[in-house]
């Protein structure tokens, strides 16, 4: 039963997340709210880190990770298949029937509104994640907050540095300065 539910939840994520990569993040946060026994908000942050530092599309990595947490090996497989199922069907239909899908004026009208909306949704996920960093277990985590304020401008300036390096530095700093709860 849990596998069926997993498939359905990730099917919905695959159907409604448009824009790839981090676009699935806001949906996963909602999932953590509705199914906290599957995955918690704190685990989502760890999942982003692992997904960014391993090969493969971030969205797929996150689905596998969340599914594994919810229901083990088979859970990861089912969540991933659920997430890719809607787009496989949609792409096949488009390839078969709609030659100039990306140039269709209704599609571009929808995307005119979707693009900024998706950026807003990712911002929502960021705010959720950030509130977890700033308030650890409901208490203000001053050290982590100061660390974020110091790190952010550096990451924004050195844009070409690979995410993996920032994540490794984050892990080292977390241990060195005891940034945990």
């Amino acid at each position: 039963m849990v596998h069926l539910a997993l498939f359905w939840e990730f099917f919905k994520i695959g159907l409604f997340s448009i824009g790839g990569g981090l676009a699935t993040l806001p949906f996963l946060y909602k999932l953590a709210e509705t199914h906290p026994h599957w995955i918690t908000a704190a685990q989502i942050a760890d999942m982003v880190a692992i997904s960014e530092s391993t090969p493969g599309p971030i969205g797929i990595n996150m689905a596998t990770y969340a599914g594994y947490h919810a229901a083990g090996l088979f859970g990861g497989l089912v969540a991933t298949l659920g997430e890719i199922a809607p787009s496989v069907v949609i792409i096949i239909l488009i390839a078969r029937f709609l030659e100039n899908f990306d140039k269709n004026r209704w599609v571009s009208s929808a995307f005119w509104a979707l693009r900024p909306t998706v950026v807003g949704l990712i911002t929502f996920a960021l705010l959720k994640l950030l509130s977890l960093v700033v308030f650890t277990d409901g208490m203000l985590n001053l050290r982590a907050t100061i660390a974020f304020a110091l790190v952010l401008p550096v990451v924004l300036v050195f844009k070409r540095v690979h995410p993996l390096l920032w994540i490794a530095l984050g892990a080292a700093a977390g241990i060195a300065f005891n940034l945990g709860p």
């Binding site: 990569g21 981090l22 993040l25 942050a45 760890d46 982003v48 880190a49 960014e52 998706v118 950026v119 990712i122 911002t123 996920a125 960021l126 994640l129 950030l130 977890l132 960093v133 650890t136 982590a144 660390a147 974020f148 790190v151 952010l152 550096v154 990451v155 924004l156 844009k159 995410p163 920032w166 994540i167 530095l169 984050g170 892990a171 080292a172 700093a173 977390g174 241990i175 300065f177 005891n178 940034l179 945990g180 709860p181």
Partner: peptide
């Protein structure tokens, strides 16, 4: 746990970076 607390901070900064690019 401590390593991931640090990683979370880096991830937040990386997401801010992606949001700005988008």
């Amino acid at each position: 746990a401590r390593a991931f607390a640090g990683i979370r901070i880096a991830v937040c900064a990386l997401i801010v970076q992606s949001i700005i690019t988008l």
